[in-house]
Design a protein around this nucleic acid. Structure first.
Lengths: 340, 340
DNA sequence: CTGAAAGCGCTAACAA
DNA sequence: TTGTTAGCGCTTTCAG
């Protein structure tokens, strides 16, 4: 198993260069020698040494993906999309679970600097836009999912947060709700910002006064959603519905309701975002916004790999850098209760 | 950013070898030169080229993990454990989602042959014991989770399937059930075999006759569990409880019950295995067996990396190759209904 | 169509 | 304590 290319060459009675040509389908090789080489490879059970190839060719055929928590299905579905798209193009994927820590994200970004990966996909991490732009300016190929960077080279894929949030909240209003709370994620994230904007728009369109005391945030996590709900309950301001910026936080709201003895949707209607796998199984099923997670992963991985290849060939890559996909509202039991 | 070790060497006024020594804390270097070198590295923003290092040292500091489907939380939690343990030891993890296809698993195994990874962890894949043993005999370092291989070098980590299955079924019997169905996974998998063994033991202990028509299988997937449940319902043999070899299939049973208008647990009690995240959220909450998924991932990753290092040093590695962790039954609503 | 030779960037003997 | 030298295994000009 420890054969090198020269061993194959000897056995086939050719030079290493020729074996390499056969291996990579590069250059002209006669069918006859091709045959001989292939047979030798077979007989010796030869496998090209990845590191040597990488060192010589200066590419690793590997991309990295940084996510805050691989267990959350929003992220694992994105990863699956990336992985499948990469596999189809012979690329490997290194997963980087940052455990919601900025420090780990920064460290994983280092995989670009030491050329462990050819490119990196960031999924809503803590790393700032500036850091991402810095890496991009150093020549590294980057893509982000769920955010957008002010740059001509950084790839991005996101959904129409403002619009779907507006329609989610409008849906609640149509159900008769007038006091609607909003539980957001990280206050400086684009997703949070845009989802809140949609929430505000819906209120405005329907001439419903905005009440700051109905706004809270829960850093996109279950526990955060739970805590935010408890805080909201403790305030004087009554509300009959809540729009949470993702499903994880909605799960936290469910837990808070269970504790407080509130029924969903009779006492409180809930709408989340992501259509995480759990939301179709819980009772009541959660109204949510279907984010095409798998597709976003595929989309960005394909663009990233295209860019990796374009850069090596023509120096310019075609296709738009930014993709916005439309997400659609899924109405389920948690918000389906007409009130007077 | 494209500095090499010699650039650092020049700037620091030393040789490349010295820089290498500083970088790897190997060999003796005076504090003074260390300082100079560190400064030069800093100033040049130098990062060692991973591929060159790998080629020279013949190790990649990377391990691979093959799973059938990263979206299923059983697997993503294992991966998280692996990833965290690897991160702590400066190892990277390449994820290999086989999409439940043997062919993909085989292809991913090739990452060992071409030295893309130093070792590989297989989580209940389709690859046969023989193939795994073959790779092991070629000198590759391997570990498996959820199965056990007849080998002195292959690492493994699993839970006490027979015992916990026995207690799960005994629990159902204590609840008054006498006709208990079993929905297994792949019939040739160790997990399936042992869980069925536990099921049989529980029946035997309680002098409950075994009925083959109450046995079915659903390849560990939701859809399979659903189909198995439908087949069981269609048979003449009545049953009031079902033990499914994992939670995914239990979810399928839930779906089948919903369709058939059967109530859980009143009409049918259900117990699953894995304690997947969903099981605590669905209604009724699912009784299941807590598998220490994260811990299994950590355990195997640590042993694998230890072995990787031992092999390079002493040629022999300590510690036992096989780990069996005790899993415990979690009784929830789906089986909590005393019958007369 | 094929071979020889150079070198990707690093580390590890061996000298000094 | 430090430098010199020789590769790790592959690809890719450049000749032939």
């Amino acid at each position: 198993m420890d054969n090198k290319i020269v061993d194959v060459a000897k056995r086939a009675g050719v030079s290493a260069a020729t074996v390499s040509r056969v291996l990579n389908d590069s250059g002209l090789v006669s069918d006859k020698t091709k045959q001989k080489v292939r047979q030798a490879i077979e007989e010796l059970d030869y496998h090209p040494h990845a590191a040597a190839k990488q060192l010589r060719s200066q590419r690793t055929m590997t991309i990295g993906v940084i996510v805050p928590d691989i267990i959350v299905s929003y992220f694992s579905e994105i990863i699956k999309g990336i992985e499948n798209a990469a596999y189809a193009r012979k690329y490997k994927v290194i997963i980087c679970d940052s455990d919601n820590e900025l420090e780990k994200e920064m460290e994983y970004l280092g995989l670009l600097s030491n050329r462990t990966v050819d490119g990196m996909i960031l999924v809503t991490p803590f790393v700032s836009d500036e850091v991402i732009k810095d890496y991009s300016q150093k020549g590294y190929v980057l893509g982000v999912i769920g955010r957008e960077i002010d740059s001509d080279v950084i790839l991005s894929c996101k959904t129409n947060n403002v619009q779907f949030s507006e329609s989610a909240v409008c849906h609640l209003i149509e159900q008769g709700h007038k006091q609607i709370a909003y539980i957001g994620g990280f206050s400086d994230s684009l997703e949070n910002y845009e989802r809140m904007e949609g929430y505000l728009k819906a209120l405005k369109d329907n001439r419903i006064p905005f009440k700051p005391s109905l706004i809270d945030s829960g850093h996109f996590q279950e526990s955060g959603g739970y805590e935010a709900a408890i805080r909201l309950f403790d305030r004087q301001e009554p509300f009959t519905a809540v729009y949470t910026a993702n499903d994880e936080m909605a799960l936290g709201v469910y837990r808070a309701c269970r504790e407080k003895g509130l029924r969903i949707p009779e006492d409180l209607a809930v709408v989340g975002v992501d259509n995480n796998r759990i939301t179709g199984y819980i009772v009541p099923t959660l109204s949510t916004v279907e984010q095409p997670k798998y597709e976003m992963g595929v989309c960005l991985a394909e663009k990233l790999i295209d860019q990796l290849n374009d850069v090596n060939e023509s120096g310019q890559s075609g296709g738009s850098k930014r993709t916005v996909i439309n997400a659609r509202l899924i109405i389920r039991e948690s918000s389906n209760y007409q009130r007077g």
